[in-house]
Design a protein around this nucleic acid. Structure first.
Length: 589
RNA sequence: GCCCCUGUAGCUCAGUGGCAGAGCACUUCUUUGGUAAAGAAGAGGUCAUGGGUCCGAUUCCCAUCAGGGGCUCCA
């Protein structure tokens, strides 16, 4: 736990508020056992082990108690103590989690406590001077959290809260939370008619896409396919079902079985089991490696070989993990497996990096971080032992990132078991991180599945495989995009780009003619000739975030024009149809 | 999977131990309107599902299913 952020003012404020919360909970819930209570981005939390559940309806009285404590304006006092004494005190007070924390502190570390009035907590500090400095805080939510983040441990009650220097900062933060909820992709997906879920009829975690949502998927996938083709990737198709034996061979059966849907058992014509089981495909790698193996003996001249696929995969995610489009059970990965030599890792990684950045830029996507995920030196960890290959791959990845001017951070222990990787991590409206793009080096599966090529000297060798996804999955990326754009897609991506509004019935025929010309020019256009006032139709199409609305009445029919209304800019005045086409072509860029 | 919260009309939500409510959407009629909501009428609910308590349950209790916030896991 030595990765604490720098103790700036807000850090101290939030950390101290966590202590304040703990004291208040201690008074209201006697016998509570304290776990940990760190500051986090925008706030803090504290984990408690309580005999009776703490609920959000308790927040009011907890906050009142916190305010009451701050009125005493006690000093935060640092108290040093030797290890045995500290341990004895925590033990005597019935605080087993604190005892564990003390036991796990490094030998040479000074044990310190912080005391605020009558209440004391094991803590490294630092804190604000007095409890009276804590004024602008609010409790936000409760959650279950495993002690030390392990499923095997007891689940504790976590209380999340936020704290700021001023009332204005606090209000601004609460407003931001409110606005974030308005751009939640689940809400916008319903309002804009993009997708829905039918958990009772179809199943949890299986999104159903309406015409507009499917148009988005189609546009997104066509775009990535075009870029991939331009970068020298070829596309393959490997279906939805795979014999289970392949996953036993690849190692997924042992490591990944829990995330696969149960097997389909084949039977003969007497209804007896044949012993052949099929699985819905949870990933493509074994399929692509099989394709590599069975499509002829490979020479070093064939490498690098890049098999890309837009594949719908099925993963049996635990029910509590499902979340809108960002965590689903049916997902479409823009996957690719690059078979190459060890010497080609760096250039292939670079190429993939370039491709990913071009795509993200096209989406105007800048709110992401790049994580270089490395192994750790823990001898018990999952990582495949091959020091030479790891070192080589890690330095190849690092130098490619630097050569391509990518800002990144390194994370030990985050690598895949089969090799290091670079992950692109985006954040959704509610502040949750989601992995989207990824490039992974794999030393292990190619040899397990018997992939080979013949090198310059006629010797058989095993290729390295890079696993790579550009947008990750169409579903998750779309979910994150919806929130980024707040549903207002750029013109090239918008499922309906242009809506034509004829003012009265007599203008409908004219509108239809123009609509046909727009469609012939490749635009996605619709006529809204409903029997509603023009103003209402404009309002509703504006709320649907339609990029361009064309309004036409008597004057336009006579002059051969339409008046152009651009989303969030308003009326741009009348243009001839040729001018409208040019205007739209300009918007496509 | 685990902890907590929630489940009432297509959507957003009121409400009650004793006849089920609003706005929007939907249907019909009137209205043909130049840049963000025309008017009227009508239709629509086994109050998630299954048990229990009660004279009586949409309301209280239990279970199941589903959704949400987290944890773990992950694209």
């Amino acid at each position: 736990m030595n990765n604490a952020p720098p103790p700036d003012e807000l850090y101290r404020l939030r950390h101290s508020t966590a202590h304040l919360l703990a004291e208040a909970v201690g008074e209201l819930f006697p016998g509570v056992k304290y776990a940990i209570g760190p500051p986090i981005e925008d706030g803090f939390y504290y984990d408690f082990d309580l005999a009776t559940p703490l609920k959000e309806e308790d927040f009011e009285r907890i906050e009142a108690k916190m305010k009451e404590i701050t009125k005493k304006n006690a000093l935060f006092e640092r108290v040093e103590m030797d290890r045995a004494e500290a341990r004895a005190i925590c033990d005597a007070e019935g605080q087993p989690y604190k005892v564990q924390l003390i036991d796990d502190l490094p030998e040479d570390e000074q044990i310190t406590f912080y005391k605020q009035g009558e209440w004391t907590d094991l803590c490294r500090g630092p804190h604000v001077p007095r409890t009276g400095n804590l004024k602008h805080f609010k409790l936000l939510s409760t959650a279950g959290a495993y002690w030390r983040g392990s499923e095997k441990n007891k689940m504790l009650t976590r209380v999340y809260g936020t704290a700021w220097k001023t009332r204005e900062d606090l209000d601004a933060y609460l407003n931001r939370l409110e606005e974030a909820r308005a751009r939640d992709h689940r809400k916008l997906g319903r309002e804009l008619g993009l997708f829905l879920f039918a958990p009772e009829q179809i199943g949890s975690g299986i999104p159903l896409f309406l015409p507009k949502g499917e148009m988005l998927r189609h546009t997104m996938e066509s775009y990535v396919r075009e870029v991939q083709t331009r970068y020298g990737y070829s596309h393959v198709w490997t279906g939805h079902l795979v014999r289970e034996d392949l996953y036993k061979l690849s190692g997924h059966y042992d490591n990944y079985k829990d995330a696969m849907f149960p097997p389909m058992q084949d039977t003969n014509d007497k209804g007896e089991l044949t012993g052949i089981n099929y699985r819905l495909k949870p990933m493509n790698c074994p399929s692509h490696m099989t394709l590599y193996n069975l499509s002829g003996l490979k020479s070093y001249r064939d490498l690098p070989l890049r098999y890309a696929e837009f594949a719908t995969l099925y993963r049996y995610e635990k029910t509590g993990e499902l979340s809108g489009l960002t965590r689903v059970r049916a997902l479409t990965q823009d996957d690719c497996h690059i078979f190459c030599t060890e010497d080609q890792i760096e250039s292939e990684f670079s190429l993939a990096l370039k491709l990913i950045r071009e795509v993200l830029e096209r989406y105007g996507f800048s709110d992401y971080r790049v994580r270089l995920s490395l192994r750790d030196d823990n001898p018990e960890s999952k990582f495949v032992q091959d020091d030479e290959k790891w070192t080589k791959a890690e330095s190849a990845l690092r130098s490619s990132l630097i050569a391509n001017n990518v800002e990144y951070f390194e994370a030990e222990g985050e690598a895949a078991f089969y090799g290091p990787k670079a992950d692109f991590i985006a954040r959704d409206a509610l502040g949750r991180d989601w992995q989207i793009s990824t490039i992974q080096v794999d030393f292990i599966q190619p040899s397990r599945l018997g992939c080979t090529y013949i090198d310059e000297e006629g010797k058989e060798r095993t290729p390295v495989v890079l696993h790579r996804a550009v947008t990750g999955t169409t579903e998750r990326f779309l979910g994150v995009l919806i929130e980024q754009y707040a549903g207002a897609f750029p013109f090239w991506l918008a499922p309906v780009q242009i809506v034509l509004v004829p003012i009265a019935d007599r203008h409908a025929e004219y509108a239809n003619e123009i609509c046909e010309r727009l469609k012939a020019a490749g635009f996605r256009a619709e006529v809204d000739a409903r029997n509603e006032k023009m103003n209402k139709r404009i309002r509703e199409n504006e709320l649907q975030k339609i990029p361009v609305i064309l309004v036409m009445g008597d004057r336009d029919v006579e002059a051969g024009t339409a008046s152009v209304r651009r989303r969030s800019e308003g009326d741009l005045g009348a243009k001839t149809i040729e001018e409208v086409l040019d205007y739209c072509r300009e918007l496509m860029k």
